[in-house]
Nucleic acid binder design. Structure first.
Lengths: 145, 145
DNA sequence: TACAAATTGCGAAAAAATTGCAATTTGTAT
DNA sequence: ATACAAATTGCAATTTTTTCGCAATTTGTA
């Protein structure tokens, strides 16, 4: 939404030697409005008839730290990184695939920082994924075959 | 390795109405010896000439909570769950893809439990993924294009 | 040992991701 | 504003990954 967000996005492209093209802007706008889409949904919403460009730009965005590519179960999802969307974690349902945000916890974030510092990596991002059964599926008492 | 591990594995299959077949045993043994393989490597090591069975059993194992399927960047990986491999988290390199285990932290685990309880899901598993730059790539001073 | 149900193994098909290349767009320097 | 080189798009074609159908085989139970 904010103008600053776009400026920051364009800047990241340019400082890395890439152009701020129309397809890239569109991809970014869709992600801002839907920060967690399956890759299929994302491609449908951006370039229905040219997956090639979508895939190329998704790959590029990932390299530039604009998005992350994740698999929840068998489904691939694209999310904006913390630089473009407030940092948070998810819990997802192993039965129906629903994804819900978890509340922020300083304690959790501190623990993660601490453990990360003990490695010899330079940390860039992190993500906690909790898997479980959502309230709806609990009630439905579904059994997987 | 331990006999108990196999018993527990077979039990999980049987109690859910599935057979302990040769391809499934092989899949499990390979996973015990290599608890974190790309799906490609896993299929190569188990049923080079019949991906179909591999995929079917990978899907089944996931449903039964024997493995998890994850995407690190653009690469799909298969891991044993905590039930069959000591619980731990990973940090992976955004440049070369190397994966390293993080040390255990009670503090971290407690924070995760706490935040999870605040949701209305029944938690089954969780996984923390840290992404960063590994020592080798730091030295190589590699730049992504 | 025999039987019903589950699973495999194979080829074929569908879906997802990548590639080559001519046409177009972009950023920069006039 | 205009022109140019480099980057990117859009399309079709390919490759890679995943799923499906079905006859033959294997498994658990009685």
């Amino acid at each position: 939404m904010s103008d600053l967000t776009f400026t920051s996005f364009k800047k990241r492209l340019k400082t890395n030697g890439h152009f701020a093209t129309a397809p890239r802007m569109k991809l970014f706008v869709v992600l801002l409005n839907h920060p967690n889409l399956t890759i299929k949904e994302l491609i449908e919403r951006t370039s229905k008839h040219d997956q090639a460009t979508a895939y190329r730009n998704i790959t590029l965005f990932e390299k530039l730290g604009i998005i992350t590519v994740t698999k929840y179960g068998w489904v691939t999802r694209i999310e904006l990184t913390d630089d473009f969307h407030p940092h948070h974690h998810h819990i997802s349902c192993t039965i129906c695939g629903t994804i819900t945000s978890l509340p922020h916890s300083d304690e959790l974030e501190n623990s993660i920082d601490l453990i990360t510092k003990q490695s010899d990596y330079i940390s860039q991002t992190h993500k906690l994924e909790v898997r479980g059964i959502c309230p709806t599926c609990q009630k439905a008492n579904k059994i997987d075959c």
